[in-house]
Design a protein around this nucleic acid. Structure first.
Lengths: 236, 236
DNA sequence: TCCATAGAAACTATAGAATGTTTTAGAAAA
DNA sequence: TTTTCTAAAACATTCTATAGTTTCTATGGA
């Protein structure tokens, strides 16, 4: 039997499916289908979907079921603007408050991230979707700001990162990686460990803006004229 | 039969109970009790609690049930700092982008808020908990920033406002209202309609910081030595 | 202090009722 | 004769309720 409850299990599975773009925006989430796919009861699925609703990943319409939350270019632009600001707030406070252990964590996660990139992702020059790399990438960025003593900034950052990850994964197969993400990460780490808040802040902005621009200029089926993406982002 | 589903009904009822401090932080939420109180089935309650979990209002521990999310002085301080920043971002963009209709909405909601205050709340000099005033107050602050074209800023603001409302209502019976909130609101509106972003921004900071300070210096049973409030705020 | 047992509550599954959606048949108009 | 609009019926899915199982907690005794 599983250690954690079936609800958490399906919640994480569904969250992964939405973030990894296995379930595209606007897709209808039939409870019965999910039941047999995850081998759980409708109750657990409903509960997982309810949590995802408050996470902003799915939309619940009473008596009409659940659908994957829509995305749009405008939403990505707004999201990027907010992310830059919040990430800067976090990194500044982390640089101010961070200790030795924090520095160690940064180097540790960076190392793991780079090693993961070398061994698994680079296939034929194009980026390939890789859950392990995605996890390492998230852990690295988490470590960078983990010394921020204000938990609410970190909370907001976490939510925004999740949403951005969704965009990244969705359009990842269509973009050619021309940047050297590794270099950007290392520069960011260098500035951070030097406690150069202004430089780190600028690098963060560069990093996030470049990522968004790359997605927007890609060949990805990411067009507001596409019927699947037209719906406006609904916020509670 | 009710128009909207029972789940939404219980979700809103529970949300109200938590925000209005009927359910104190740390309190255990027995599903069965809620069932008979709200006259609904356990399934609906579970679903509502799941949504509240992602809202950060309740904590879910597998196999151990649900409890009302804890609060603390440190959390209120962090929250206030973040709120000030986010509210400023919103008001600045609203001032930049707002149109005539937006201005009208501000005046309309301000008027309703003041009228509500006169007729209902002032009883014996002390502030009395009043759901209607709380709703009008929220609508007024919503209207102020509603012209902000970046939906993500508004989304974050909405979440932070909700959390702050919880603190305000919880400690409200214990604070004597020495400020003239009406004056502060009117000054804020004046600065906003004059499109004076810097002044409005400063007033916002003043407004929020004063509210937090008032709560922290109140006689409210709001002490980290109290066992009910000691638990750290858990962030997903 | 440790262990066992009894009780309570959460978790899961199954079944039935209410609601929304689609399809199809029929009739009227072009 | 063909097309289109309407309406009703059949289907699918969500929503709600009830029952059974597993897990946790508390109390009593060794």
């Amino acid at each position: 039997m599983s250690k954690q409850s079936r609800t958490l299990q399906t919640y994480q599975a569904l969250k992964f499916d939405v973030l990894s773009a296995r379930y595209l925006p606007g897709r209808k989430l039939i409870i019965e289908n999910i039941c047999e796919e995850q081998c759980v009861s409708p109750g657990a699925v409903r509960e997982a979907l309810a949590r995802l609703t408050s996470d902003g990943l799915v939309i619940a319409e009473p008596q009409k079921g659940f659908t994957v939350a829509p995305v749009s270019i405008a939403d990505l632009q707004d999201l990027t603007e907010v992310r830059i600001d919040v990430e800067q707030k976090c990194i500044r406070r982390a640089i101010r408050d961070g200790d030795i252990e924090w520095e160690g964590q940064i180097l540790s996660t960076l190392h793991q991230l780079n090693k993961t990139l070398e061994t698994t992702v680079l296939e034929g020059g194009k980026l390939v979707f890789c859950p392990i790399w995605a996890e390492k990438h998230a852990q690295f960025h988490d470590a960078l700001v983990s010394a921020c003593s204000n938990l609410w900034w970190l909370n907001l950052r976490s939510r925004l990162f999740m949403q951005a990850e969704r965009y990244r994964w969705m359009t990842l197969p269509y973009v050619e990686e021309k940047r050297f993400v590794v270099k950007e990460h290392e520069a960011l780490v260098a500035a951070t460990l030097d406690r150069d808040a202004d430089l780190a802040s600028a690098l963060v902005e560069d990093h996030l803006q470049k990522t968004a621009d790359l997605l927007l200029s890609s060949d990805a089926p990411f067009d507001d004229t596409d019927e699947r993406y037209t719906k406006a982002v609904k916020l509670t």
